[in-house]
Design a protein around this nucleic acid. Structure first.
Length: 285
DNA sequence: AAGTGGATCAACCGCAAGTTT
DNA sequence: AAAACTTGCGGTTGATCCACT
């Protein structure tokens, strides 16, 4: 399949946008929306390709963009998420309201990479390794940053030679046999194993940025904790966020308090570390 | 004042995946 | 099923700024 050309090369402008062009683009999107980026420049009367318009809007003109320097908290969040997700800039941006993937990428390359190196050097001199067990242990794909979770149908010895359990239990050391989707049903997946993570839509479904921030922090802390800490944090998470998830998940799933069933506990542990979202998007509910 | 080099960031490019025809 | 098309992502570039000599 051939790639469509970005734009007709002749006559289209490149380089920095002028305030006039910005105004035209803003006015057009406010009036007509941006259903079709390719058609937009022609409709708006801009001598730009659609790709350039989309980028300008997404990274600069969108009204919900937060301007100014990154706060210390935002930088720390980026560092932690990058440790988990790698160069998944859009995924990181989805967890930082008002920030764009491009902006985060720039900040990473200009500030944070250096910061991280300095931290690593400092840690190394103390004889500590920054690699937490979850990111090096079995069940973790360091190339993608995703947890490897066995599908319920999978009984292959190949994978069990790596781990007999889901990613969650790779951390906790507990035994488990099933992986559940967001409805707490077994995943109907014939593939040998699945790459599982919380879908990005999860974050947009949660209304309050304070909640998002809390969940992010909890998620990160969880991944860096030992078994006992994880257990305590999972319990706390249930109490704190069950109400947020009401309407998104079925009661049987999130209402897992003191006498929680083992299966539900596994589900929560998986969800908690970002390994339980499965292929089923939360948007499907 | 002029030159230089590093830092910053907006914008471009190529690719892959998804969608439509 | 395959081609055509659209969108989004991540890597990279290049113009500009700024501190330093």
């Amino acid at each position: 399949m051939g790639r469509a050309p970005c734009c007709e090369k002749m006559g289209l402008k490149k380089g920095p946008w002028t305030p006039q062009e910005d105004q035209i683009l803003i006015a057009h999107i406010q009036k007509q929306g941006h259903g079709n980026w390719r058609a937009l420049p022609k409709q708006a009367g801009l001598l730009r390709c659609g790709k350039s318009c989309r980028l300008r809007w997404a990274n600069y003109l969108r009204p919900d963009i937060k301007r100014g320097n990154f706060s210390r908290e935002e930088e720390e969040t980026i560092l932690k998420l990058h440790e988990i997700l790698g160069n998944k800039w859009s995924a990181i941006a989805a967890r930082l309201p008002g920030r764009t993937d491009n902006e985060i990428k720039n900040v990473w390359h200009t500030h944070l990479k250096k910061k991280l190196k300095q931290n690593q050097a400092a840690q190394d001199t103390k004889g500590h390794s920054l690699n937490s067990s979850f990111s090096t242990g079995p069940g973790f794909d360091s190339a993608t940053g995703y947890a490897l979770c066995r599908s319920p149908q999978d009984t292959s010895s190949e994978f069990s030679s790596v781990t007999d359990s889901s990613f969650a239990t790779t951390i906790t050391g507990e035994a488990t046999t099933t992986t559940k989707n967001i409805k707490n049903e077994p995943i109907d997946d014939s593939s040998e194993y699945s790459f599982l993570e919380i879908d990005d839509s999860f974050w947009s479904l949660t209304q309050s940025s304070a909640e998002i921030s809390s969940i992010q922090s909890a998620e990160i802390s969880y991944m860096q904790s030992d078994m006992a800490q994880q257990q305590a944090m999972a319990d706390e998470f249930e109490l704190q966020f069950a109400s947020s998830l009401e309407g998104i998940m079925e009661p049987a799933v999130y209402d897992c308090s003191s006498n929680i069933e083992d299966d539900n506990k596994d589900f929560w542990l998986n969800l908690f570390i970002g390994a339980g979202g499965c292929q089923n998007s939360l948007n499907d509910f």
